[in-house]
Computed example of a mutant assay.
Amino acid sequence: MAALKIKKGATSHSAYDLRSHFSDVIERHTLAVIVENEPGVLARVIGLFSGRGYNIESLTVAEIDHEGHRSRITIVTSGTPQVIVQIKAQLGRIVPVHEVHDLTVEGASVERELALLKVRGQGDHRVEALRLADIFRASVVDSTLESFVFEITGTPEKIDAFADLMRPLGLQEVARTGVAALARGEVAHG
């Protein structure tokens, strides 16, 4: 009897398809999690991430419905597609969690962040810092003879770019709020 000449992993329809269907590409996802506004909920959500070694790049939390006692947790995290699916599934199993939305895959969304940047400088550095702030539409919210505090709102990438340009001009401190995000269009997410 002749041996079958089947090439390993030749087709996805083959019984002998031994290719890995798991991607090792790291993706950045923004998750909106609607939770009951009660003590310990945030700790449970964060515990899920830390207990499994998942990283949180940004975290924002605020009450969105006073009467309904609901809060919105916006989490920016990174991982392989399989890890992101696992995170969403595990978040959905936490009892005070009402909804989990992956804004990255559910369609277009808007992300914004607020940052305060303290820049020390004199002379030409001071003038250049003000010029760049104008280009980036950053506001001066505090000024002394030695420093400025700028307020900037925009995408995380915009804030990163502004901070990178301020670094050689005397950037001293940065405070960021974390990402706030909403789906675009008529889809209502908490």
Rank of each mutant, 00 (worst) to 15 (best):
H98N: 08
L171D: 06
K8E: 14
V41P: 08
T77E: 00
Y54L: 10
L182Q: 01
Q90M: 10
A43Y: 13
D24Q: 14
A89S: 05
G121S: 02
G40R: 10
G68H: 05
I152K: 01
V105S: 11
V61Y: 03
V85T: 08
G47Y: 06
Q86V: 10
R176K: 12
L116W: 07
T177Y: 05
E67L: 14
H125M: 07
G123K: 11
S109I: 02
E113N: 01
V83K: 03
T11V: 10
D134C: 11
V100E: 04
I152T: 00
A43L: 14
G92H: 13
R28M: 13
V85D: 02
H101E: 07
V76I: 06
S109C: 13
F136C: 07
T177R: 14
E146T: 15
R52N: 04
Q82L: 00
R137H: 08
L130S: 05
M166G: 05
V33F: 09
D24F: 08
M166I: 01
V85L: 10
A108P: 09
E27K: 14
K118C: 06
L165H: 06
G9K: 14
T74P: 13
P168L: 02
A108M: 11
P168C: 07
G107M: 06
H101L: 03
A138T: 00
Q172A: 03
G178A: 11
G121T: 06
G51I: 12
E113Y: 04
L169S: 02
G170N: 11
K7W: 05
S71Y: 06
L169C: 11
A138Y: 03
S109H: 15
V149S: 15
Q172I: 09
R126S: 12
L103C: 06
R131W: 08
K158S: 09
V85K: 08
V33N: 15
H125T: 12
R19W: 09
V140Y: 02
A108E: 14
V110Y: 01
T144W: 11
V33L: 12
D142N: 15
S147F: 06
R137D: 11
V174R: 10
E57W: 00
E67V: 15
V76P: 07
A183R: 14
E57V: 02
G47T: 15
